[in-house]
Design a binder for these strands. Structure first.
Length: 425
RNA sequence: GCCGGGUUGGGGUAGGGGAUAUCCUUGGGGACUGUGGAUCCCCGGACCCGGGUUCAAUUCCCGGACCCGGCCCCA
């Protein structure tokens, strides 16, 4: 039983990976704060029942769950929204609107594949207590700005739809089971037109109406193209509140300079709890899974035994984001601080160097020391291959002059600095 | 849960029913206890696991684990 291997679907992060992850998280936090969102956090374990309540057995089957020592059925959290919702309804005193974000670790027991592991981080942002076009566009623009901040501007597209509009469309073309038709439409880009048409036909959507629907689904539209495309189904759709809200949201985003945002009738986001607009972000080429996804879910607070609270939010996983950043070479170094490596020559030199080490640390510098017995050549070699930016040399010469030698490893330049002036470096 | 492809030092690889398992790179050390990335020399390090076939398996067969990808589902 000497298993010292990594669990399937889990990933180790070495310093070089952490540097990138930290950079991603820093950007997320920076933009969320910029938008006036406040950080929250919650446990990584919750009662399994909470997910049964919200998402049913389908999700529960994919959890890392177990019975604890007190016979409670608990699980590593598979998604963020229920915990956020639990926190929200537990506090009646909070001033609205409430704008929260966090970056929890989430777990799902499913087969690993590209852009999907059993453990991952997900940036989440939710806006509670207010609804409408401005709020919709704020939450979508937040997702966009997070991507923009990482150099992905113009490399992604956001597909937006509205649940109520979609339901209205389906009703008008004679759908008898809106929920299951939505889930058929959800597969529009994965299956052939024939397969999709066949399934819809079985549900009684036929003839010209089916043709019109398939034609509507087969592309995305700019705000000003919506009217024409929807008229094809039924002109009366233009009086639907869902249409108006969606169109105005798209206009609002465009007015604020967000360009790659389209109405996409094939974006419906599963069978879950969304009640208004829904949206998903993809890379431009459509090479990867969705980068983020979300929507309005006004009914959820009541399911959690709270008062009705309007809610909209999205989640952005780290795995697909990493795929895309890698593809576009978007990493930037996080660690821009200068780093120092102190080399003391001889026993006396090392003692003095060691004092300087602690002195510089107290002054806030990032500094390490060579405790090995290498010769100077190898010490410098070591320092440069470790990636230090400067070395500090303390030998007989320096001790005699009460100074240190500072060498810039990139340029090779050297200067002598008096020990009393160490603050200068 | 299902399907396809894979697994040889830390990374990348060659090979192969029996022999000291190849090469590159990385790591450690030295040439060179007062000035680095070059060069040369030395050293360390691998056949995923279990079972079967066989005189003999790292090689062939079966199963499993893990990796990559797809399905289901979708945070």
């Amino acid at each position: 039983m000497s298993k010292i291997e990594k669990l399937r679907g889990f990933k180790d992060y070495y310093p070089e990976d952490m540097e990138k992850r930290e950079w991603i998280f820093q950007n997320m936090r920076k933009i969320a704060k910029n938008f006036g969102f406040q950080p929250i956090d919650y446990p990584s374990l919750e009662f399994l029942e909470m997910y049964r309540l919200k998402s049913g057995d389908e999700l529960v089957n994919q959890t890392y769950s177990f019975t604890d020592k007190g016979n409670r059925e608990i699980t590593l959290i598979p998604e963020a929204t229920p915990s956020t919702m639990r926190m929200l309804v537990a506090r009646k005193d909070l001033l609205k609107p409430i704008k929260w974000y966090n970056i929890p670790k989430l777990w799902r027991y499913e087969e690993p594949q590209s852009g999907r592991n059993r453990e991952h981080y997900q940036f989440n942002a939710d806006y509670f207590g207010e609804s409408g076009v401005f709020v919709n566009s704020e939450i979508i623009s937040l997702a966009c700005e997070v991507l923009n901040s990482m150099g992905l501007k113009n490399l992604y597209v956001v597909r937006v739809n509205h649940r109520k509009l979609m339901e209205a469309i389906l009703e008008r073309i004679g759908s008898i089971d809106v929920a299951s038709d939505l889930s058929i439409i959800d597969h529009f880009r994965k299956e052939s037109v024939e397969e999709i048409s066949g399934k819809l036909e079985e549900h009684g959507i036929k003839g010209q109406k089916l043709k019109n629907l398939v034609s509507l689904l087969s592309k995305s539209y700019r705000a000003e193209e919506m009217e024409e495309s929807l008229s094809l189904i039924d002109r009366d759709l233009l009086n639907e509140s869902g249409y108006k809200e969606l169109r105005e949201t798209l206009n609002q985003l465009k007015d604020n300079g967000y360009e790659n945002i389209v109405y996409d009738p094939a974006t419906v986001r599963g069978l879950s709890y969304y009640t208004g607009i829904v949206f998903e972000g993809f890379d431009r080429e459509g090479k990867f899974r969705s980068i983020f996804g979300g929507g309005r879910y006004d009914g959820l607070s009541e399911l959690f035994q709270g008062p009705p609270i309007p809610a909209i939010g999205f989640g952005m996983g780290d795995a697909v984001l990493e795929n895309i950043l890698r593809e576009n070479n978007c990493w930037e170094s996080v660690n821009k601080d200068k780093t120092y490596f102190i080399i003391g020559i001889g026993m006396e030199g090392k003692k003095v160097a060691n004092h300087i080490l602690y002195d510089l640390r107290r002054k806030g510098r990032k500094v390490s020391m060579d405790y090995s017995d290498r010769n100077l050549t190898n010490s410098i070699k070591h320092a440069s291959s470790m990636g230090f930016q400067y070395i500090i040399l303390v030998g007989e010469k320096e001790m005699r002059n009460k100074s240190i030698t500072l060498r810039d490893l990139a340029s090779g330049e050297q200067k002598i600095i008096g020990m009393d002036n160490l603050g200068e470096i």
